[in-house]
Amino acid sequence: MTGTERRGVRFGAMMGDNGIWLVSNASSGSNDDAALAALEECLAANDLGLVGRTVFPEEELPTPDALDAAGVECVAVFAGDGTINSLIAGLEGWGGAVLVLPGGTMNLLYQRLHGDRPLEDVISLVASGAAQKRRPGVIRSEHGDAYAGLLAGPGTSWGRVREAMREANVAELAAGTVEAINETLGGEMIACADPPLGRDEGYPLVMLTPRDHGIEVAGYYAGSAAEYLEQTWALLKRNFREGPHDALGTERTLRLTSTQGNPFGVLVDGEQVDAAASVEFVLAACGVDLLATEADAR
């Protein structure tokens, strides 16, 4: 099935005494000890006890068999997009549900499922049975599923700069910034080949954003010094969406191709992979139920 599945099943009160399994990642953007302690207090205040926990990557992510053996029906993940991606992918086909919480830098999947609601309100709604199981649209390719978003092109080298910023690695930041500038200005261009969209010469960076009804396509560019500086600032702020770009429409299937026939880089939910010279991306339904408190998952 392509697109989203509407489960229409309310979730929360049915958990009974089974409790929640919590997955966290201490290296994520907003996931320090104080934030974790506040989260646990909020869960306890809403009578959502913890029956298990995983600290990733020090510990392996829970498997469907392990969760079933523990009688768990809900896994809450308080981490960034990369950890969330790994967890959801590993739970494909599981009969329980995943509660995505804002433990990362941008929390894009959280926003799709819960809008601008604060974490405390989301947990309260889940506990009261007001959340619903959803299978939102995701971007599927040979490189796995993207739940939050996907970036393609030499501009994805900025992902390494972002990691260096997060880890406060000054030497790597300096070297990575120079490399990213060189790759963005002189690297491979990426074209939307099928269907043909946007500029024939392609873009240094193409962003794909999953929605329930299709894949939103945007081509980012830097045609002048002013635009380049604007793009650089947006990238360094970890928000690609603020840079100058062309909105290219919404598609259910899309093929991206490097204009010179060479492999190109891809960031799948922020994680770097190396792609071939041409890759097809399709809209698909998420392989496990996610809990949503918005009327419609975006």
Rank of each mutant, 00 (worst) to 15 (best):
G3S: 07
E5D: 11
G16W: 07
D17Q: 13
W21I: 05
G29R: 00
N31Y: 08
E40A: 11
C42V: 05
C42R: 11
A44M: 10
N46K: 00
G49F: 03
L50W: 07
V51E: 04
R53L: 05
T54Q: 05
V55W: 05
P57T: 05
T63V: 10
T63L: 13
P64M: 06
D65R: 09
A66K: 14
L67G: 08
D68C: 00
D68M: 06
D68N: 01
V72R: 02
I84D: 01
S86H: 08
L87I: 03
L87C: 00
G93I: 06
G93Y: 02
W94S: 10
W94K: 09
V98Q: 08
V98C: 06
L99E: 02
L101K: 00
T105C: 00
M106N: 04
M106E: 08
L109R: 01
Y110M: 08
Q111S: 11
Q111F: 07
P118F: 04
E120C: 10
D121V: 03
S124A: 14
V126S: 00
V126Y: 02
S128K: 14
A130M: 07
K133F: 00
P136H: 03
R140N: 08
R140I: 02
S141Q: 04
E142S: 04
G144Y: 05
D145G: 11
A146G: 02
Y147Q: 09
G153Y: 01
P154G: 08
P154Y: 14
G155H: 08
T156A: 12
S157F: 15
S157K: 13
G159Q: 12
G159A: 07
R166A: 15
A168Q: 13
N169Y: 10
N169H: 11
V170P: 06
V170Y: 10
A171R: 12
A175R: 15
A175G: 14
E183Q: 15
E183R: 15
T184R: 09
L185M: 12
G186D: 14
G187P: 08
E188M: 10
M189L: 11
P196W: 00
P196D: 00
R199W: 05
P204Y: 10
L205S: 07
L205A: 07
V206F: 00
M207W: 14
M207A: 15
L208C: 03
D212G: 12
E216M: 05
V217T: 01
G219L: 04
Y221P: 10
A222S: 15
G223Y: 05
A226L: 05
E227Y: 02
T232H: 00
A234F: 01
A234N: 03
K237G: 13
K237V: 09
R238S: 14
R241W: 05
E242R: 11
G243L: 12
P244E: 04
D246P: 09
L248Q: 03
T250D: 03
R252C: 13
L254S: 10
R255T: 15
S258D: 06
T259F: 03
P263K: 01
G265H: 15
G265D: 13
L267A: 10
V268L: 05
G270Q: 04
Q272I: 10
Q272S: 12
D274P: 05
F281S: 07
L283I: 02
A284V: 11
A285W: 01
C286A: 15
V288D: 01
L291Y: 03
A292P: 08
T293N: 07
T293M: 04
D296S: 12
